[in-house]
Design a protein around this nucleic acid. Structure first.
Lengths: 145, 145
DNA sequence: TATTTTTATTTGATATATCAAATAAATTAC
DNA sequence: GTAATTTATTTGATATATCAAATAAAAATA
C-alpha cells in the first residue's frame, strides 16, 4: 500500500533511476576521455551509424531541443569530434560528419559504454526488460498529446 | 529480438518517458501558474509536508546538486514562494519556510499535479506499477556504487 | 582552549535546457 | 515570377546541471 506523496510515485522512481544511470555513465566515460559527456557520445554513435542526419533529426533522436543541439554540436566541433559543413542540396541544413578523432574516440569508449549498460541492467531478466519497455512506452504515449 | 544500438536500450526508453512526462507537467502547470516549474512545485510540496529540512536533504530528495538547490531556492524566494532564514541552532544551515503564497499556489496546483500523474499512468495496472518499481529500483541500485 | 577536520551553503565557470525571436533558404500560393 | 508561408538553424535571455573551490560555522582532536 503506497501513500501518495510525490516521492513515492512511479515518475519519481524513473527520475531516480535515470539520474543514477547518467551519473554512472559520465563517471566511467570521463575516466577514459575527459572532455566528452554521455550525450555527446550518444550523438557520436548516431552520427557514426547514420550518415547525413539533420540537426533536427538528431534532436528528435536524443530528445533535445534544437537550440541545445546547435550548441552541443558547436562544442563537439570545437573539440574536433565532428565537422559541420553546409548541405548544398538544402543550404538551410548543415552537413554533419564524424571526424577520425570522433571514430577513434568511439572505439576507445565502446567497452565503457557496453560496461555501463551491463552494469545498469545487471540481474534484470529478458522478461523484465520487456515489461519495462511496455510500461515506459505506455507512459510516453500517455504524455504525448 | 532487439538489436543493440543506443536508441533501442532500456535506458533510452527511460529517458524518453521521463522527458515526455516532464514536458507534459510543465505545460499543464504553466497554464495555471506561469512562473513555476515542476521541480519548484515538487520542492514546495516537500517543504509543505516536512518542516525544517536542510538544503542538502532537499537536494537528496529531488536528486539535485546542492549548488542547484541554492539557486532554485533563491529564485523561489525572489518569487515569494518560500522564505529563507538562518537556523539559529546551526548557523550554517538555512531555515526554509513555505509562505502563504506558496501554500496557496500548492492548493491551486494540486488538481493539475494529480491530473498529470493520472494522465501519465493511464491504463497502467497496479501490477505493472509494481513491476516498474521493482525494475527501476534494481537499475538505481546497480548504478549506485 | 587552540588547532584541525568535517559539514552546510555559496560562488564561479562552463555546459545544457527552454522558450521566443531572428535569420535565411526552400516551398507554396497567387 | 513574386509574395507569402514553411522549414532548418541560430541567437538571446534566463534557468538549471555540474564540478571545483571558497566561506563560515560546528565538531573533533590535541
Amino acid at each position: 500500500m503506497k501513500t501518495n506523496t510525490p516521492t513515492t510515485t512511479a515518475l519519481y522512481s524513473i527520475e531516480q533511476a535515470i539520474k543514477a544511470y547518467r551519473k554512472l555513465c559520465n563517471k566511467n566515460i570521463s575516466k577514459i576521455i575527459e572532455d566528452i559527456t554521455v550525450d555527446q557520445a550518444l550523438i557520436l554513435i548516431i552520427l557514426n551509424d547514420n550518415s547525413s542526419l539533420t540537426q533536427m533529426q538528431i534532436g528528435d533522436l536524443v530528445f533535445k531541443d534544437y537550440a541545445s543541439i546547435t550548441r552541443i554540436l558547436n562544442l563537439m566541433e570545437k573539440k574536433g569530434y565532428i565537422k559541420k559543413g553546409i548541405n548544398n542540396k538544402d543550404k538551410r541544413r548543415s552537413l554533419l560528419e564524424i571526424t577520425t578523432k570522433g571514430k577513434e574516440t568511439l572505439t576507445i569508449l565502446s567497452p565503457t559504454i557496453q560496461l555501463n549498460r551491463n552494469t545498469a541492467l545487471k540481474n534484470i531478466t529478458e522478461d523484465e526488460l520487456n515489461q519495462l519497455y511496455t510500461i515506459l512506452n505506455k507512459i510516453t504515449n500517455n504524455c504525448n498529446p
